[in-house]
């Protein structure tokens, strides 16, 4: 099963290597990983999407928690959360296809960010299902390139989750 894990980490050199290294050393999968500063510039938030059964994901969380630079680990999958990904899709667009593409873009409240004589580039932000849907609809026109940011996610409402070092057991 797919799990979305949100981490707060100390904004130190090498922290990304430590985290990426953990995944490769222990053979865990990374579906996507995003990172960016929080409101506190000494702290970054990472969102990691990983695949594994409950036992493996529990180990992933615990091993992440063990890293010295990791402040907090929350498996968002256990609670209500919002996730978003930004995707740029360059579609083949000639003649009357252009208007159809523009129509689809409008329906999805996506944006056209670049136009050339033969292509249109669409920017879409959304959760998995929305992105999946627009990709499906645009595919018949011929997708030339896709660039995805990977998911960012945040818990809904007041943030809950276990703090590092807190008694988990």
């Amino acid at each position: 099963m797919r799990h979305t894990i949100s981490l707060l980490v100390r904004n130190k050199p090498g922290v990304l290597s430590h985290i990426a290294g953990l995944f490769s050393a222990r053979g865990y999968n990374i579906d996507s990983l995003t990172v960016g500063e929080t409101d506190d510039n000494t702290v970054s938030r990472m969102t990691i999407v990983t695949i594994g059964d409950d036992r493996i994901v529990e180990q992933v969380s615990k091993q992440l928690n063990k890293l010295i630079d990791v402040i907090k680990v929350v498996d968002l999958t256990d609670q209500p959360f919002v996730d978003r990904e930004l995707v740029l899709i360059k579609v083949q667009a000639e003649g009357e296809k252009r208007s159809q593409i523009i129509e689809i873009t409008d329906i999805f409240r996506a944006k056209i960010v670049d136009v050339s004589p033969k292509t249109i580039t669409v920017e879409i932000t959304g959760d998995d299902s929305k992105i999946q849907a627009i990709i499906e609809l645009l595919s018949p026109f011929g997708i030339k390139e896709i660039a995805r940011t990977g998911k960012v996610a945040i818990a809904r409402g007041r943030e809950a989750g276990k703090n590092k070092g807190g008694a988990t057991c």
Binding site: V9, I68, V70, I71, K164, G165, A167
Partner: peptide, 8 residues
């Protein structure tokens, strides 16, 4: 003190 490191 390392904010992110507090062994139980």
């Amino acid at each position: 003190s390392i904010s992110s490191y507090n062994p139980t």
